[in-house]
């Protein structure tokens, strides 16, 4: 019995304290070091923030370089397949151009009408000031089972702040949650930690919550409200962060929201520098 206990304690101590050969550090010393780093980072000591920002910038750049081969091969295969389909695509595009030409007149009329109505209502077009919208490249898009976020190549250097909305083709994709000097992290709409106030087609208000899967869900809908397929979802702007009316997606048959922008296929996004959250996010 005592021999077995001795064996246990020897193996236990050895596993914690063993050094020598290739092992220059014992497990115990590294556990202590990791705990110190963890608590310094969590409780945000003043000197850790710039260090963390610097480390983030360096590691994100290295990650971008290290991921080049994994991006290169799918890109080449896409290029080859699109080259082979160029003729068919040309036909389709010609047909689409004809269709859009006829729609253009309609749009022009509606734009004028919209402007006149806004004048009557004495409101300003919310996206009037487009000069502060910047284009950013997605540096890292690592698919984690737990966190849905991307890293972009613009940071506090050009004025990006926490909470700024991020869009692609005018569709909302997320908001900035971490800023470094040369890079920022964007929390995507489908992340479990994402909550956005939204308006539905018929004017109903709700909260769009990330579910961790590709399709966020609608919460806090009005009582007895039944979600049907094909309802458009827009940012309501009630939080003062997102521009009201920014399109997000459409509801599907399961009551979830199909986003207009596939969060797994982002390569360039735009950040609106005009808007910033007032509180902590």
């Amino acid at each position: 019995m005592s021999v077995s206990r001795d064996d246990f304690s020897i193996a236990f101590r050895s596993a914690l304290l063993q050094r020598g050969g290739a092992q220059k550090f014992s497990v115990l010393s590294l556990i202590f070091l990791a705990l110190i780093i963890f608590f310094l980072d969590v409780y945000g000591a003043k000197f850790t923030k710039p260090i963390r920002g610097f480390i983030n910038d360096v590691v994100y750049r290295v990650t971008f370089l290290a991921s080049t081969p994994s991006r290169f091969f799918p890109q080449v295969s896409n290029d080859i397949s699109s080259f082979l389909n160029v003729r068919e695509e040309n036909k389709k595009l010609k047909a689409e151009i004809e269709k859009y030409k006829s729609l253009e007149l309609n749009v022009e009329f509606l734009t004028d009408e919209n402007k006149n109505l806004q004048k009557i209502l004495e409101t300003e077009y919310f996206n009037k000031n487009l000069s502060n919208i910047i284009l950013a490249k997605v540096l890292v898009d690592k698919n984690s089972p737990f966190l849905k976020s991307i890293i972009i190549n613009k940071g506090t250097q050009i004025g990006i702040l926490k909470g700024m909305p991020v869009t692609k083709d005018n569709y909302l994709v997320g908001r900035v949650v971490e800023t470094n000097y040369l890079s920022s992290r964007v929390l995507l709409l489908n992340d479990l930690n994402s909550r956005i106030p939204v308006t539905l087609d018929e004017g109903a208000q709700a909260i769009l919550s990330g579910s961790g899967s590709n399709n966020p869900i609608l919460e806090y809908l009005p009582e007895d409200y039944k979600v049907i397929e094909d309802i458009s979802v827009f940012a309501s702007g009630k939080d003062g962060i997102f521009s009201p009316g920014t399109p997000i997606g459409k509801t599907n048959e399961n009551g979830e929201v199909d986003l207009f922008v596939d969060p797994n296929q982002l390569s360039f996004v735009t950040v609106n520098l005009n808007v910033q959250s007032k509180g902590d996010l």
Binding site: F38, V140, S149
Partner: peptide, 19 residues
């Protein structure tokens, strides 16, 4: 850093595996 977790948490998890 890449995943956006607090620093040191993955290291701790890996060190438990080593232990």
């Amino acid at each position: 850093v890449v995943m956006g977790f607090p620093l040191g948490i993955s290291s701790l998890s890996y060190l438990i595996i080593i232990f």
